[in-house]
């Protein structure tokens, strides 16, 4: 593998981490969805480059799925959802942006510290990829717990899943069926989330999941 191949793979996956951070920084839903589309397209590019470098044809399919579905279809659907709900301005963060970004930096450092020593003898490409992928996963989780809005939680989940696919693409010999099933499960999750969000909206006139909390366990308590 040439230096250029390594550098480009490194650049693409590094960019994904950066975009994950950018995701955390957004305070408008529409902007966030656009950033997420960029995230997914970057994933498509990264996986495509892996397909080229590894000469693995099936990875092109994964790249295609990532690019078309996650980069175009799902963001478009989410845009439509946000428009129909009329919530394009809202984002209720739980923790402020500053502390969130500091936590994100710490998590990225942690991911590098965990992966680097553990994969000492692995292919350097896979190593870097794994470290970045873990960082993307952790940032996705961080996004899920620092946001209240159901749509931004969906976006957090999907960016987490992007990290998983990045990790999978970096490892050689990952069979296509795994990626297809992962993509499929994300699609299902998206549908479920979507339906769920509309149901929440119908019931409670908001997609702030904090509202749900009041409605738990009332049968038992008889409140």
């Amino acid at each position: 593998m040439g230096d250029f191949a390594f550098d480009l793979a490194h650049l693409l996956s590094g960019l994904m981490v950066v975009v994950s951070m950018v995701l955390l920084y957004q305070d408008r839903l529409t902007a966030m969805l656009n950033v997420f589309a960029a995230h997914a397209m970057l994933l498509g590019a990264a996986v495509g480059w892996q397909a080229e470098v590894q000469g693995a044809g099936h990875l092109w399919i994964t790249a295609g799925i990532a690019f078309v579905f996650k980069g175009i279809v799902i963001p478009a659907a989410l845009h439509a959802m946000v428009r129909r709900l009329g919530i394009h301005r809202e984002i209720e963060t739980v923790v402020g942006v500053g502390p969130t970004l500091i936590a994100a930096l710490a998590l990225t450092a942690l991911a590098v510290l965990v992966v680097m020593p553990a994969t000492e003898y692995a292919n350097p490409l896979a190593r870097e990829d794994l470290a970045f992928a873990l960082a993307v996963v952790l940032l996705g989780l961080l996004m899920m717990i620092t946001r209240r809005n159901a749509v931004s939680q969906i976006v957090g989940f999907m960016s987490l899943e992007n990290g998983l696919i990045l990790a999978a693409a970096g490892a050689k010999g990952m069979p296509l069926v795994v990626e297809v099933s992962v993509a499929f499960s994300v699609l299902i999750a998206f549908i479920v989330f979507g339906v769920f969000v509309f149901r929440i909206r119908e019931r409670f006139d908001t997609v702030d999941i904090g509202t749900l909390e009041r409605y738990r366990g009332e049968q038992q308590d008889g409140a």
């Binding site: 989780l141 961080l142 899920m144 717990i145 209240r148 904090g210 909390e213």
Partner: peptide, 11 residues
């Protein structure tokens, strides 16, 4: 706990 707190715990 709230859903978000459960997620936080796992995280």
């Amino acid at each position: 706990l709230t859903i978000r707190r459960y997620l936080t715990l796992m995280f």
